[in-house]
Design a protein around this nucleic acid. Structure first.
Lengths: 352, 352
DNA sequence: AATCCTCGTGTAATCGATTCCACGAGGAGG
DNA sequence: CCTCCTCGTGGAATCGATTACACGAGGATT
């Protein structure tokens, strides 16, 4: 049970603990003979350094914290995967925290992470300005925001800019003859919650279209809220002819609501979503979505954070999102050969 | 920068570090006056104990490791979520590792976790018998297997038993007139890889049906392999009329392959999957699947592990999976009111 | 009034590493 | 042959907590 420590290695190799530590850390000079004996002892004893002790002494854990808003959301799942991958390549470990879109759980994880003395924190804030996050940032904890961010703190942000893609989407919808466009927004306290609505409204304005309050549903990025918002739209005197969900989970909820009413997409009503995921190829119908360069975002975020940790100057990064047209908004009017649609016969792999 | 330590608290409260530690840990007796002064000091200084130091001394981290096979798989994602939730309720933290179905990455995570001196390990082994896992188990690391397991070690297993549900599935398929049934298996090195094939074969036998080798596709639980296996089936002189994928990702791949060939489900070929996920309600067509009690599994696994850690006797748990019939295998022949199908008009929430 | 508990508290050892400093041996330079 | 470096090495302090042990004060017991 008593796991082997550096002392045991030292004893077996016939050297002091200092020497063992030196060979293990490729430090100063150690004679080839001693080094060999130490290495042998390490091997023979199956010695593994105690990370806790090491970190306590050196004051660095080579560990990064990642707090995401919702693990059940494929977008964040893919983000988490790329973050871990890049971190591992850079010699860091990742500890994840899942906030489940709940600020108090988010704070719980952040506190735990801080208590563990992680070297840096990657956050996609669930709310607009947790005092905990703000304090940590001001206290000097290396931090970078991914996807969502909080204004007013000097923390680099790595995110996708969807405005051009949203404009493309609106153009696409307008071209298909849709005029009454509604959106299911995320919480106004999150940047992605408000920005996507703003981008949508701006794009509509370019086509002389208005975005009435009744056409802005309030969601929370989870499926159930998408369902509720959609039902509300359908109960309106003049329901919209397009519903644009600000994330994939709410789009799923919208699909649920539409199916429950027996409505057909896109014939009765069109649907589009922010965030593209593999499943959207196979839904009935395949859904038109705005795809973020998720893997790139994750990698860039890790690089920014490690830059900050290792004394380099971190840069904020904004990458463009792009529109992926499928069938959920309707076909081009022309009865000829389908043109505007990207062929998806040889679907992309779900693994980069 | 120099974060506040127990010494600073002690100084401010005018007591010794021992007393501070005592109030923080609700230990022995401390006078109300001293306790109050300590608490004030903690508050004023914003003191947070250093987990590293504490764990080093006490030899326990109140942290559990969870190594899952693939984060991109919604099944594991849901499992991870329930595991974390239950662990949090029990006062433990979880550190996740994503093996990406690659044994070497799995081992990397296990090693890292062990180096961190986690109190226990939850593993869903990617391969049949990583020496690392075996050694750790034998060395006394508290461990429990979830979903998949490794034979020959005395480690509790928490999993779902799908055999009854597979039998139900075969009955359903047989009733629909299908006779040529194929399966896309997972790696034979995993228990879920081989067990599901065995259950399928047994169930077929009950109906006097055979499972020829050509109808056993070899997959690796990832989408691309489902696609490849399906293509191979379709190239057979007599292709199967049903494809049963042993997990949801391979089912996705199968759907891809079917769509690429222009085949219609279930008219041209039927499809079923192991693991039910919210998206299966919305695919084209909705897919018939075997649902595991994922949340229950996660919670049971955590309880088994904490039992082991805290000196109680852990129990293995096996929960039944159940068949969820949708449209991907065809409609019941009788033209009367649809009976066998569970109404899904008010779809379940994607959040328990 | 002497003795014995009990209670509250502080001193110091400890966990397992890293690292500063000192020291002895041996080679180079004078 | 003496001095001075350099190199390899060990001793011991340190990181920030927990906790065994000792000790003094005060109340209860006889």
């Amino acid at each position: 049970m008593a796991s082997v420590g550096i002392k045991d290695v030292a004893a077996r190799a016939g050297v002091s603990v200092a020497t063992v530590s030196r060979v293990l850390n490729a430090h100063a000079s150690v004679s080839p003979a001693a080094r060999a004996r130490v290495l042998d002892a390490v091997e023979a004893l199956g010695y593994r350094p105690n990370t806790l002790a090491r970190s306590l002494r050196t004051d660095q854990t080579r560990t990064l914290g990642l707090v995401i808003s919702d693990v059940l959301n494929p977008y964040f799942t893919e983000l988490a995967r790329s973050v871990e991958e890049e971190a591992r390549a850079l010699g860091y470990s990742i500890i994840f925290g899942n906030a489940d879109e709940r600020p108090e759980i988010q704070d719980h994880h952040i506190r735990t992470l801080l208590d563990r003395r992680i070297d840096g924190l990657l956050v996609s804030p669930t709310d607009g300005g947790s005092p905990l996050v703000l304090d940590a940032a001001r206290a000097g904890t290396p931090m970078v925001f991914v996807d969502r961010w909080i204004a007013g703190v000097d923390v680099p942000v790595v995110r996708a800019d969807g405005s051009a893609a949203v404009r493309d989407l609106v153009a696409h919808l307008h071209g298909l003859g849709h005029r009454r466009l509604a959106i299911i927004a995320g919480p106004a306290t999150t940047t992605t919650g408000s920005e996507r609505v703003a981008a949508f409204r701006d794009a509509l304005a370019e086509y002389g279209l208005d975005l009435p309050d009744a056409y802005v549903g309030q969601g929370d990025f989870q499926a159930a809220s998408g369902r509720r918002a959609t039902e509300r739209f359908l109960d309106l005197p003049t329901p919209p002819d397009v519903v644009f969900a600000a994330d994939n989970l709410m789009a799923l909820g919208a699909l649920d609501a539409l199916r429950a009413r027996g409505l057909r997409v896109p014939d009765d009503i069109a649907l589009a979503a922010f965030d593209d995921i593999p499943w959207f190829v196979h839904t009935d119908p395949p859904v038109t979505a705005i795809a973020q360069p998720t893997g790139e975002l994750g990698r860039a975020a890790v690089r920014a954070l490690t830059d900050r940790i290792e004394g380099r100057t971190p840069r904020s990064v904004t990458l463009p999102a792009r529109l992926v047209v499928r069938r959920s908004c309707g076909e081009a009017a022309a009865p000829g050969p389908r043109t505007a649609r990207k062929p998806e016969g040889a679907p992309r792999d779900h693994r980069p």
